[in-house]
Design a protein around this nucleic acid. Structure first.
Lengths: 142, 142
DNA sequence: AATAGTGCTTGCGAATTACAAGTGCAAATA
DNA sequence: TATTTGCACTTGTAATTCGCAAGCACTATT
């Protein structure tokens, strides 16, 4: 894996150096919407190749956006989960969902959820954040 | 230019098929924050190469996110500007700004603007949207 | 001891990117 | 009128990255 070099100090440029590619935000979508947390679950993300997934997870680990722990329920497996910094990305992912649902034809958005996102963005977002925080804190308690 | 093929019908996946790369959202940042609208202005975007810029602008044109018109003030030049669909992307770009400003070290965010974005996101966003709409409607009136 | 599951890594051809240089056209200048 | 300048790209090419298939190391199960 090669870290993309810093193009400038603009917050947007710096952010895109980390997650501005075809796959990273889709992987984060899996954490957020599907709660997929094992490598073998994440590899179903729109058929991403395993080498690309491994590369992106490493980049996210390096940037402290996800963390990796041994799964207490299956010790030969790892659990990936969002850090605080990763949870902070949730509004971006939901904004992208919203834009796609409103602006791209033939998307499969759930119309109820789409309406919720359009009318109560911050409520939807904070509910998802809470759910993720609860789930991801329970790693050792399940 | 080759359009990335549709990976799935998920709104996020479809959105990232359009702007999920290192450069596209940075170009949109230039429209939004710097009001850069000519090819020669946009090419200063963190030193993007001209072939990549041309490719991305064509993709944005095809997807009805930007439009292209002859500049009335300089007929050998073109003005690119955001369509309604492009203006709808502004919240995404500002969320990315916000995340980068809050989560990446050594970013050059203006601290006043950063505070505004953190405390009054929707106000900041709608002000920027209004400014862009006004500017981009005045193409033929300046 | 053999098999299966999990999380990767490796090899390689194909596709994409970045950098430099060049092109075509309109407008300004000599 | 001829030449130069500015603008918006296009082309060529080497390097990088990607996607697919296969393989590997480790653990747990049978």
């Amino acid at each position: 894996m090669k870290q993309i070099e810093r193009r400038s100090d603009c917050p947007i440029s710096l952010s895109l150096d980390i997650f501005g590619d075809k796959w990273t935000l889709l992987i984060l979508r899996d954490f957020i919407f599907f709660n997929n947390r094992h490598f073998n679950e994440l590899v179903t993300v729109e058929k991403i190749s395993t080498n690309i997934l491994a590369d992106r997870l490493n980049r996210l680990l390096e940037n402290d956006i996800v963390k990796k722990e041994i799964d207490r329920n299956n010790k030969s497996s790892y659990l990936y989960s969002l850090t605080e910094k990763g949870i902070d990305l949730i509004p971006i992912v939901i904004e992208i969902y919203k834009w796609g649902a409103n602006n791209i034809d033939e998307n499969n958005a759930n119309s109820e959820f789409k309406n919720e996102v359009n009318s109560n963005f911050s409520k939807v977002t904070s509910e998802i954040v809470e759910r993720i925080k609860t789930t991801h804190n329970n790693v050792y308690k399940t």
